[in-house]
């Protein structure tokens, strides 16, 4: 059980870190100043959440490790984030769709974890939940504004939605460590959360006047450390300083 809990916490931490990193790439490049600030704010929330998860994970470790060891010194196969979150920013449409697909799940996940029988999971989930409400509001509004916008914005959103749809449902497929936590009544089976999440996605996609993509085979592997090509580039960027100058501090 404790081994599964440790893996699950890393999965949650890595999700937040990797998307936080992707969003931070927008800093200084946003389409307008307010949205540049919005994406940087969301990135900051996510990196803060990642720190809380990593600190918790480090506390549970037998060895004397820190949050920094976990974020900066693991290899690609040890990262357990969803494939969706490592996908490139591409353009603002991709970024919004990726954010919305994630927020719709993240919101449901945290609201469930807030009632977990595990006090550690509960505390960080409660801390994160209110932040994620604002994220979901932001991404839903932009889904609708751009989907139901001009011909060009509509088309860009549809393309992004179709492309990212392969990664939309990985979150609902349980890993071994999630299965064990479900068995021990620590978390809810992700396939049960799927119902509410899919309903919310449908509602927003409809309001955005976008076509619901056809059913595709859900790409998976992220939860077990098998990643897409994009992930290596993220880690090269993210870990460069610590790998080149071990133990550098500022």
């Amino acid at each position: 059980m404790s081994d599964s809990k440790k893996k699950y916490i890393l999965h949650l931490a890595d999700n937040a870190l990797i998307l936080g990193h992707r969003l931070s790439e927008w800093c200084g490049h946003g389409p307008v100043l307010e949205q540049d600030i919005a994406m940087s704010n969301i990135a900051l929330d996510l990196i803060g959440q990642a720190r809380n998860w990593y600190q918790l994970r480090a506390r549970l470790d037998e060895a004397d490790i820190t949050e920094d060891d976990l974020a900066y010194l693991r290899d690609i196969r040890q990262y357990r984030n969803l494939l969706l979150l490592e996908q490139e920013n591409q353009d603002f449409a991709y970024t919004v769709v990726r954010q919305f697909l994630w927020d719709s799940y993240h919101h449901a996940l945290l609201s469930d974890l807030m009632d977990s029988s595990d006090q550690d999971l509960r505390a960080v989930a409660q801390k994160s939940f209110k932040e994620v409400q604002y994220h979901l509001k932001w991404s839903s509004e932009w889904m609708i504004r751009l989907g139901d916008g001009t011909e060009i914005s509509h088309q860009k959103m549809q393309t992004a939605l179709n492309d990212l749809w392969y990664y939309a449902d990985e979150c609902f497929v349980s890993s071994e460590y999630e299965e064990e936590l479900v068995k021990n009544n620590v978390i809810t089976d992700p396939s049960i959360l799927a119902k509410a999440v899919k309903k919310m996605r449908e509602e927003i996609i409809q309001r955005a006047t976008l076509d619901f993509p056809e059913e595709v085979y859900a790409q998976r592997g992220g939860k077990e450390g098998i990643h897409t090509e994009q992930m290596g580039y993220i880690l090269a960027d993210l870990q460069y300083m610590q790998r080149t100058y071990p133990n550098a501090k500022w």
């Binding site: 600030i37 969301i42 932001w138």
Partner: peptide, 8 residues
């Protein structure tokens, strides 16, 4: 104007 401002 925006739900996000100069600080969190």
């Amino acid at each position: 104007i925006s739900q996000f401002g100069s600080t969190s």
